[in-house]
Design a protein around this nucleic acid. Structure first.
Lengths: 139, 139
DNA sequence: CTCGTTTTTGCAATAATGTCGCAATTTTGC
DNA sequence: GCAAAATTGCGACATTATTGCAAAAACGAG
């Protein structure tokens, strides 16, 4: 059994929710995804799991912090979060749709200081940059 | 006529799209909103405008940069962007739902340098912080 | 392993949300 | 004003999401 799968079932157990075949399927779908997916893509890619169960579990995953959600236009996209995926943000090209992952220490620090200033306790954060990539600027 | 309304119609004319009553209504709804709204809230708050027209125009507004969209859970929320609203980001309390607006020069600079490093040309960006506010941490 | 309990699932019905084509209306530029 | 172009409302439809409930699966104690 892959390490990720084991980590995943541990997280479920840790929160005292059952480890079921449906949850495994959905998790594997996200694990194998080449990019963040829409809800309906996830539904389509887990044909053995009923639509309702997919939704119920995606909501659960979000609550447990297993997944993160971002926005493309008006469509929410979901991908795995830490520790299944390294922490990162996204920079999306409006023209070609390419999505670059961003990891930046300084950014994280600035965010930390903003939060501290307001006495917030941060549980998650999302940064989305949108524009034109180098190629699409010239062509 | 309010200054915002005038600015709004100027933006429309500048992009050579018609200034219509529907667009005005939708814009006013956003202008009067006390917080970012979901699509269906906007539909409900503009009863004289057909659902389809609301959607078509919200899409137009987003293209023209009149509005910005962010995510609450899986639900996209829309609010006015610059110049109708000062540029800002959001910090949301998970417990009480309160949304604090963030404005931070250093943050903008770091984002700028990240973008430059990748030769992107930025058209917009979004920062969403989620956690517990000072009050909810103690209680 | 087996049993009783609890949780989760699938199903089916239904609600909510979003999209599309088209004729009628409104806006625009002249 | 008037003709052309853009936009709207309407209605039908497609897609997406939610809910109640009985059946099935997972759990944990013994």
């Amino acid at each position: 059994m892959s390490l990720d799968i084991k980590k995943f079932s541990d997280v479920l157990r840790m929160h005292k929710v059952s480890v079921t075949a449906s949850r495994m399927k959905i998790f594997e779908t996200l694990l194998q995804a080449e990019r963040p997916l829409t809800n309906s893509e996830i539904v389509k890619r887990t044909p053995t799991v009923d639509r309702a169960s997919v939704y119920r579990n995606l909501e659960l995953f979000a609550e447990l912090g297993i997944t993160e959600t971002m926005l493309r236009g008006w469509t929410p996209l979901t991908e795995l979060a830490e520790p299944f995926r390294a922490h990162h943000h996204h920079m999306t090209c409006e023209s070609c749709g390419r999505m670059i992952e961003i990891e930046d220490h300084e950014l994280e620090e600035v965010l930390g200081s903003i939060v501290a200033r307001h006495n917030f306790k941060l549980t998650k954060h999302l940064v989305e940059l949108t524009g034109l990539c180098a190629q699409c600027q010239v062509s």
